[in-house]
Design a protein around this nucleic acid. Sequence first.
DNA 1: CTCGATCTAACAATCGTTTGAAAAACGTAT
DNA 2: ATACGTTTTTCAAACGATTGTTAGATCGAG
Lengths: 347, 347
Amino acid sequence: MPRINIKDIAQKAGVSKTAVSFAFNNPSRLSEATVQQILTIAEEMGYSPDPVARSMSTGRTGTIGLLLPQPLPEIVRNPFFPEFLEGIGEVCAHSGLSLMLVPPLKGSIRRAIINAAVDGFLTLGLEEFKATMVVLRQRGVPFVTVDSDPIEGVPAINVDDAGGACQAMRHVLSLGHRQIAILAIRSGKQGHYREYVGTLGARMHGYLQALEEYGLTIDRRAIRLLECASTEEGGMESFQTLWKLSRHPTAIIAMSDIIAIGVIKAANTAGLHVPQDLSVVGFDDITMASLIHPALTTVAQPSREKGEIATRLLVKLIEANAKPVHQMLPTRLIERNSVCPPRREEP
Amino acid sequence: MPRINIKDIAQKAGVSKTAVSFAFNNPSRLSEATVQQILTIAEEMGYSPDPVARSMSTGRTGTIGLLLPQPLPEIVRNPFFPEFLEGIGEVCAHSGLSLMLVPPLKGSIRRAIINAAVDGFLTLGLEEFKATMVVLRQRGVPFVTVDSDPIEGVPAINVDDAGGACQAMRHVLSLGHRQIAILAIRSGKQGHYREYVGTLGARMHGYLQALEEYGLTIDRRAIRLLECASTEEGGMESFQTLWKLSRHPTAIIAMSDIIAIGVIKAANTAGLHVPQDLSVVGFDDITMASLIHPALTTVAQPSREKGEIATRLLVKLIEANAKPVHQMLPTRLIERNSVCPPRREEP
DNA sequence: CTCGATCTAACAATCGTTTGAAAAACGTAT
DNA sequence: ATACGTTTTTCAAACGATTGTTAGATCGAG
């Protein structure tokens, strides 16, 4: 038995379909009495306009899509995702929009983009950029990229990952550390850090810049680079790898807090004292960073704002055709208790 | 300039719209050569079937809606929301479905339900139940309620809030506590605990049951009930209120971890030692519960599973018409370090 | 060369709305 | 009664696909 539709109501009320439509969307074009009658009958029969059919006609869905590079379960584990969502949610609520989460469909981002019935996309940290961009373009709806390398003509919201990373590295260097390990999030680039892209690339760039200011560079001896999974285990394993080497670093800089926390835990169980024996810096400022002992020195980014600003821009693009702007939000170093000057060097 | 559509492709390829449609959805009904030709042209012209129009025809959107009782920003702050999402995400990924977050639209859940182009709804902790249920019914798509008082004939997934609460209270009672304060999440019911509904009601019920087993009941003297906001501040204020009274409780049982954490912090700043001077129990087992000092004894629920099972059921309801089942998932008491026997009573 | 079987592809209806343009209804002034 | 300006209401054409049914092409066999 099919859902009750506009024709049924029109028939029952003895008016045309048009009249019923007007009763809902443009009551001023009908007499008050007719509107009331139609609405009453609709209420009685439990009718409401079909959202799909309405979208078909109006060309609007009232929904924006959040395009995710990975399956939902992996994304939501990301500790700053909720904050980002919060920012999006604020703007959505204000504009009366719904939010559709759009992970890859059967492994394909392309399929996901093509299938999503939305008025516009927010993309979060896309990797395979060029291909995806083409699909987005031909999909024909506006989109705003977040956390992707900015491209001319494509609206983009980013945070100053490079600047934050640079601050973090500078902080450590300024305290006198010269034996430093960088723990990068594993990317499949096998340590070829010049090929890093996106967030990863920006952070790496920041680290390198600070090193350069001190006349240093990654040399596999004093300044080392290791890749690991962005998990506690990844951090723990990396610590162990490093501690097997002859010369230990006096500071470890991790590209994510969760890695840094793994390092601290592993260091603790190895009997070391953080920061006296080993300084540790993270990135992201997740909740746990301030709760762990010692509290983690890290780089914070305005996740909520990022979502908010990106969504605001997208809404503008959907409603009118605003200009595709780039915007970069600040990051800042949060100094807590996991960093101090290195011990005097023992000969 | 209108989006390119099926007709354009048909024209260009010199075939009918039907053929183009088949090339995408049912290639076996066309010769291999034709399919290839159509697909190539579609590729060249950047065509893909419009998702809205497709939904219109097929009656399917490929999307399920998560109906939320509050605006997005408030919901995502809820620490177990991500886990719940994770469970939903797993099933969605597996079934090739997208997820639409559906908060109240301009303050109205009804409007939100009516407007959402989805194949089914998951509802999370709905309060105004009867009204919403009616709207959902007439919306004509299947739905599964999560964390709502179960109703005959409506598929529902719940966790054993009552059982968990009962265990928590029993635990405290069995250690000898007889001066106990219950901190309930404020609900507008002004302490009339018999009117609590949903999760709140179930937890309260559990506390009361355990008390009854010991021949006790809420009496405003030994066993007290206080309502507060489910925030750290709420917990802190409640502690202060309680400590102004002549007879202090030896144990505080909070309906949420975040309240319990507020209590612990306030107790610490008041110079008390938890648990020696005051035992504290929470509910939810959020991440912070295990990180705070002392680690919080609390009741854990399988949030991820809850999402997973609910979604699985919804998918079944959408695909065939399965039976509307009720299911209750277990909760369990996690004993950590915030509870111990009360001090010997001083006369 | 014709007939029938087997593939291919096309026709046309359908999904449930919205909306610009046109018709009908109505009241009022001439 | 007629003409005219407002309201009120209806017509019918989109919107962009899918799909059951049917017509036409192709091919081999008789």
